[in-house]
Design a binder for these strands. Structure first.
Length: 419
DNA sequence: TCTGGGGTCCTAGGACCC
DNA sequence: TCTGGGGTCCTAGGACCC
């Protein structure tokens, strides 16, 4: 029995947040701008109707917006974060199993709900009453189809903000009407590659043999194809996994040409990143620094590079992180370019509690060592090449191989020999 | 019969998401 | 002149291990 999954998406979230606190903006075209007012990152329906594009550079559209009477707001992420938390709290009333997917989206498991559509309409009404934010609800057997359903809920006025895509016939009809890039996980480049092999619509992708898809496009696209058929490949993750990496980066107001200036910027980002990390009680041993030129300026020579610096001992120390970032910078720095952006990324974050200044060894390394030892032990006991023979299907050795593979879940390789 | 090959780690880069 | 910032996952190739 398939479990219905709902995708709840806040309509024009940032624009809607601004409206909650400035009701005079109701019914007006609004645009929210990115960090340093660089480009459009959110639009109200009215602004969309006027033809305002997502990502439109502010400097090219300033006069145009004024002429059209579009209201402009700089982004206020603290506000949006608070509003998001309110929306999510409200959603929890409607299902115990909820995955917060982004600041303005959540997946909900609606298993056991008899009247899905009514439930969803009730949810919509409650969120609007409690938070002032309008949402759309798409319901389907898989996340990918729920995304499609949500799109319909949003664009088709007759839906009233709720759309169910639970049966096969409806799904086919819906997939016929949309393009490849309307599918979650397929953007420009993948769509081009799919088209080259003759798949021009989501329906084609759905109906091609998944094995062939996997061969040609990898596991990610295979999953998408299966999900389009209604086969769930992506679970609802109601416990959010710990963060794996974090970034501090900015575009420069004017291009940076001098190493000294870049030094300063990178040091600032390294500090900001370290600060963010400590706030979450994390530590890192892998620091990435990256620099890039302005890819919008086709007339300029382009260069982008990144460098990872491994510290082997995880740290939360800003000084060490900054030093590592600057070391990376000197490795990739090339003069003669107009740099537009730079940043510092911290990878493989671990809880700072496990570090405590002592020698840090990632669990993976311990496990892989144990696995190596296990492999040799098996080879020694059963003869060289046992693992290889196992792959050919000998029954006794097959069990060994299975144990061997599951070594990733245990650090005691001795267990492996208990067959 | 074949008789160090299978496996992991690391890194950079691509592609996608909101 | 002026085009965001912060994430995730996957892949491929080479180094390395025993």
């Amino acid at each position: 029995m398939t479990k219905p999954i709902a995708l709840i998406d806040c309509n024009n979230f940032y624009a809607s947040c601004e409206r909650v606190f400035q009701p005079q903006l109701m019914g007006k075209p609004i645009v929210v701008l990115s960090n340093n007012d660089g480009c459009v990152i959110a639009r109200s329906n009215e602004a969309k109707a006027l033809g305002v594009e997502m990502g439109a550079p502010w400097h090219l559209n300033k006069e145009n917006f004024e002429r059209l009477g579009v209201k402009i707001r700089s982004s206020n992420y603290a506000l949006y974060g608070d509003m998001s938390a309110r929306v999510m709290r409200t959603l929890r009333q409607f299902s115990p199993s909820l995955e917060v997917y982004s600041i303005d989206e959540a997946f909900l498991c609606l298993d056991g709900i008899a009247d899905l559509e009514n439930h969803a309409r009730d949810l919509r009404k409650t969120v609007a009453q409690w938070t002032g934010i309008p949402v759309s609800v798409g319901i389907a057997p898989t996340k990918t189809l729920a995304k499609v359903a949500n799109k319909i809920a949003k664009s088709d006025a007759r839906s009233g903000g709720v759309f169910c895509l639970m049966d096969d016939g409806q799904q086919i009809a819906a997939l016929k009407k949309i393009g490849l890039t309307d599918i979650w996980g397929i953007a420009h480049r993948l769509a081009l590659r799919l088209q080259e092999t003759g798949m021009t619509s989501p329906l084609d992708l759905r109906d091609v043999d998944p094995k062939l898809i996997r061969q040609a496009f990898g596991v990610t696209v295979e999953r998408i194809a299966l999900e389009l058929r209604g086969v769930p490949c992506l679970e609802i993750e109601d416990i959010s996994p710990p963060r794996k990496s974090l970034v501090a980066s900015r575009s420069f107001g004017r291009p940076v040409e001098i190493l000294n200036d870049m030094h300063e910027a990178v040091a600032t980002y390294a500090n900001r990143a370290a600060e963010k990390m400590r706030k979450q009680n994390l530590a890192t041993a892998n620091i990435v620094v990256f620099i890039e030129t302005n890819s919008f300026r086709k007339q300029d020579r382009q260069y982008r590079a990144s460098q990872t610096v491994n510290l082997s001992v995880a740290t939360a120390d800003s000084g060490k992180i900054t030093t590592a970032a600057l070391k990376g910078l000197s490795a990739i720095w090339r003069s003669g370019f107009l740099y537009k952006k730079a940043g510092v990324m911290l990878l493989d974050l671990v809880s700072a509690d496990h570090v405590q200044g002592s020698l840090f060894q990632p669990t993976d390394t311990l496990v892989s060592k144990a696995r190596m030892q296990a492999m040799d032990a098996i080879n020694q006991r059963f003869g060289r090449g046992t693992i290889r023979v196992a792959a050919t299907g000998l029954q006794a050795s097959w069990q060994l191989r299975r144990n061997f593979m599951s070594a990733r879940y245990t650090t005691d390789w001795r267990e492996l020999l208990r067959v």
